[in-house]
Amino acid sequence: MPDRRIVVMGVSGCGKSSVARLLAQRLDFAFVEGDDMHSPSSLDKMAAGIPLTDADREDWLHRLKQTLQDHAAQRSGVVLTCSALKHRYRDLLRQADAQLFFVHLHGDRALIAERMRMRERHFMPLALLDSQFADLEPLQPDEQGVVLDILHTPQELAEQAALALTDDTP
């Protein structure tokens, strides 16, 4: 498979990190955890149960865009995690690579809430899940990507994503 830039997206608790790591391993691409690029103030805000504003996310999204640009310039494949909830956020990321491919992990709110309750030491509290769903805008026809149901295991989701990428290879 040629080098690609891939964003695994969705609301908090949908399994972005797990699926992205497996997909990166399967493709032999770099893996970048988008949450690691949040500012300390944004992490504190979310940990306190306060949803981020578009202004809070702006610098973070630009850091993610730069990461994607760096990989595109090096012609190297990367799988990056980012909630990418809004179309305009994804538009910004696509400025780094017009062929950017999104893997949207989609699932039932109750299932995601249960998963969030079970995880330990994560900055994102369950209280913010509804705000994430409220902000979520589905992939649009102008965006390359696939929507996958999180009822499947992370391994199955990584495989489905890899197959979708194969089908989408320019």
Rank of each mutant, 00 (worst) to 15 (best):
D91A: 15
A162P: 00
F123M: 04
L22Y: 01
P141T: 06
G10S: 07
Q155T: 10
K86F: 07
H106W: 12
T67C: 09
A48R: 14
A158I: 02
V19R: 03
S41C: 06
V147W: 08
A47P: 10
T153I: 07
D108H: 13
S39E: 14
E120A: 10
R57H: 09
H122M: 02
D35W: 04
D130I: 12
P40M: 02
Q66E: 11
E58I: 02
L61V: 04
T153P: 04
M37P: 00
V7H: 06
V19N: 03
L23I: 04
S41H: 06
D97A: 08
A30R: 01
L129Y: 06
V78E: 07
R115H: 01
P138C: 10
G34M: 07
W60N: 13
A96P: 10
Q25Y: 00
R4C: 11
L68D: 10
D149Y: 11
K65T: 14
A134E: 15
T169R: 02
M1S: 10
I150E: 08
Q66F: 07
D54W: 01
P141F: 08
T67H: 04
L165D: 03
K86R: 15
L93W: 12
R57D: 14
A134D: 15
G49R: 13
H38G: 02
R117A: 15
V147N: 08
L129R: 05
V146D: 14
L128Y: 00
A164H: 07
D135V: 05
G34D: 03
D167P: 00
L92S: 06
G13T: 02
L64R: 01
A98N: 03
Q66I: 04
G77D: 05
H38Q: 08
R63Y: 09
D70P: 04
S18C: 02
I6A: 03
A161C: 06
E143W: 07
G145N: 14
L111V: 05
G13M: 01
F101G: 08
F31T: 00
D130P: 09
G15H: 00
D97I: 10
L139G: 10
D97P: 08
R121I: 01
L92Q: 13
L23T: 02
L64H: 02
R4T: 06
G34Y: 07
A84C: 13
G10P: 05
R119M: 05
L93A: 14
E156K: 00
A161W: 12
L92N: 04
L68Q: 06
M118G: 15
F133T: 09
G77R: 09
L139Q: 11
D59L: 13
M118C: 03
L136T: 09
W60Q: 15
I50L: 12
R21E: 02
L85K: 12
E114M: 05
E159W: 05
H71D: 07
R26N: 01
Q66V: 03
L85R: 13
A73L: 09
P138T: 13
Q140W: 04
A164Y: 09
R90P: 09
W60V: 15
T67K: 02
I6K: 10
A48H: 06
S83Y: 14
D56Q: 09
R5E: 04
S39C: 04
R119E: 07
L151A: 15
Q144T: 11
Q74I: 00
D44S: 15
S42G: 14
V8W: 08
Q99V: 00
